[in-house]
Amino acid sequence: MVVATEEMAVYCFDTLIAHYTGEQPPPPAFEDGNHPLFVTWKKASNGSEPRLRGCIGTLEPRQIVSGFKDYALTSALRDRRFPPIQSKELPSLECTVSILTDYETAQDYLDWEVGKHGLIIEFTDPDYNIRRSATYLPEVAGHEGWTHIETIDSLMRKAGYNGHITESLRKKIRVTRYQSTLHTMHYGEYIAYLKKNRGAAPAINGLPVVNGFKTGH
Rank of each mutant, 00 (worst) to 15 (best):
59 L>I: 12
59 L>S: 06
62 R>Q: 15
62 R>E: 15
63 Q>W: 14
64 I>R: 11
66 S>M: 02
66 S>G: 11
67 G>W: 06
67 G>P: 08
68 F>G: 11
68 F>C: 10
68 F>Q: 07
69 K>Y: 14
70 D>E: 15
72 A>G: 14
72 A>T: 06
73 L>E: 13
73 L>K: 15
75 S>V: 02
75 S>W: 09
76 A>D: 11
77 L>D: 04
78 R>M: 11
79 D>A: 04
79 D>G: 07
80 R>S: 15
81 R>M: 08
82 F>Q: 00
82 F>T: 03
83 P>R: 12
83 P>Y: 05
84 P>A: 03
84 P>Y: 07
84 P>G: 08
86 Q>G: 12
87 S>A: 14
87 S>M: 10
88 K>M: 08
89 E>N: 04
89 E>C: 02
90 L>Y: 02
90 L>V: 06
91 P>D: 08
92 S>G: 15
95 C>H: 01
95 C>F: 00
95 C>D: 07
96 T>R: 09
97 V>G: 06
97 V>N: 00
97 V>I: 08
98 S>M: 01
98 S>G: 00
99 I>T: 01
100 L>V: 00
102 D>I: 01
102 D>P: 00
102 D>F: 03
103 Y>H: 06
104 E>L: 03
105 T>Q: 13
105 T>K: 14
105 T>A: 14
105 T>M: 10
106 A>P: 06
107 Q>P: 00
108 D>V: 01
108 D>P: 04
108 D>N: 14
109 Y>D: 09
109 Y>I: 06
110 L>R: 11
110 L>N: 13
111 D>N: 04
112 W>T: 04
113 E>R: 09
114 V>S: 00
116 K>W: 13
116 K>C: 10
117 H>P: 00
118 G>Q: 09
118 G>W: 09
119 L>T: 07
120 I>E: 12
120 I>K: 13
120 I>N: 09
